[in-house]
């Protein structure tokens, strides 16, 4: 290990933190900051999906539904029932988690394709609910005037302030996810993804742990949705169409299934990228699609795998070119 490696290893987390903390001062204007905040919210959502799909191997293609449930719950509780924003945001996670049971209980024994179709149907049902339950959701009109978060007498109305709220929650969820991976619960989930027969054999109650995985991942997704509601301060059904679920899946795949850094980079990257390419006009969506395909081809373990590789090289764990065993949480071959 060279001196550089040592310095890098000792400072990388602080450099990253310094960049994250000062980011609002670097970003050229408020519009880009807003996009970046949105990217971080999608990073949280991608991380949530990763707990279900990356860790437990359950591929949900209707995941945006839980984001929507969180957004609507917090919007309704604050605008119609006068709940304080922090409490409403927490309850958004709780309700999203509870509603996940209506999906996880009946689909417990479904596998692969069948499970995916069930999640797709759930996403569509939720969308129809947002659209048609007008007494509560205001239908296509959407819910306006959602209050901004206020804490300790400070309003987090501006993006440059709300950014820090998102950052704190993102960091918290990263830590929780990391702890989960190296725990009894996390290993039970990983074992289901790897081999459900062997999981049963070591004593894992497979349906029960699938349900737990659902509860945890949808709680975080609900929180992400609530963050979205209080940032944009307006929700309408169009934000939660099934196409959005595909976008979140793409974020997870581009980031690298099961990789935490990957979820962050995938979530932020795929939100920011189309905006940065806006000057290209209509061709940008083609380029957007093409870049996803290129990443999947040239970095089969996603950007997360790439980042871990670079990190290993910089910290001297791996020399250039030689693929050494990585302390990697997952990722398929």
């Amino acid at each position: 290990m060279t001196l550089f490696n040592k310095v890098y290893k000792a400072t990388r987390i602080w450099i990253l933190l310094a960049v994250a903390l000062t980011l609002p001062y670097w970003v050229p204007n408020n519009y880009y900051l807003q996009i970046f905040c949105l990217g971080m919210i999608f990073a949280i959502l991608t991380l949530s999906l990763n707990i279900l799909s990356g860790m437990t191997g359950l591929f949900s293609v209707g995941f945006i539904a839980f984001f929507g449930i969180g957004a609507y719950t917090s919007a309704i509780l604050t605008t119609k029932l006068g709940f304080p924003v922090p409490l409403a945001m927490f309850l958004a996670g709780v309700l999203s988690s509870i509603l996940s049971l209506t999906l996880s209980l009946p689909t417990m024994r479904l596998k692969g394709m069948y499970f995916a179709v069930a999640t797709l149907a759930f996403g569509e049902i939720m969308y129809q609910l947002f659209l048609n339950w007008t007494a509560v959701t205001e239908g296509t009109k959407g819910i306006k005037g959602i209050p901004a978060l206020e804490l300790f007498g400070t309003s987090f109305r501006s993006y440059s302030k709300f950014y820090y709220v998102i950052l704190v929650i993102l960091i918290l969820i990263i830590m929780l996810a990391r702890n989960l991976i190296s725990s009894r619960t996390g290993r039970a989930m990983l074992s289901i993804r790897e081999n459900d027969i062997a999981a049963e054999a070591v004593g894992v109650n497979v349906p029960q742990y699938k349900m737990i995985s659902f509860l945890i991942s949808t709680f975080f997704a609900g929180i992400a949705g609530a963050l979205y509601a209080h940032m944009v301060r307006y929700v309408s059904p169009e934000s939660f169409v099934n196409a959005e679920s595909a976008a979140v899946l793409a974020m997870m795949v581009v980031g690298g299934i099961g990789s935490i850094p990957g979820a962050i980079v995938g979530g932020i990257g795929l939100t920011v990228l189309p905006e940065f390419m806006r000057f290209l006009g209509n061709i940008r969506m083609v380029l957007y699609g093409a870049s996803i395909v290129l990443i999947v081809i040239f970095a089969p373990r996603g950007l997360g795998g790439l980042i871990e590789r670079i990190d290993n090289i910089l910290s001297g764990k791996q020399s250039l070119g030689v693929q050494k065993k990585q302390q990697h949480i997952e990722g398929e071959e």
């Binding site: 929780l176 996810a177 702890n179 989960l180 725990s183 009894r184 619960t185 737990i212």
Partner: peptide, 9 residues
């Protein structure tokens, strides 16, 4: 025995 909450926290 470790439960999901203690696992994460």
């Amino acid at each position: 025995k470790c439960d999901p909450i203690s696992s994460m926290l």
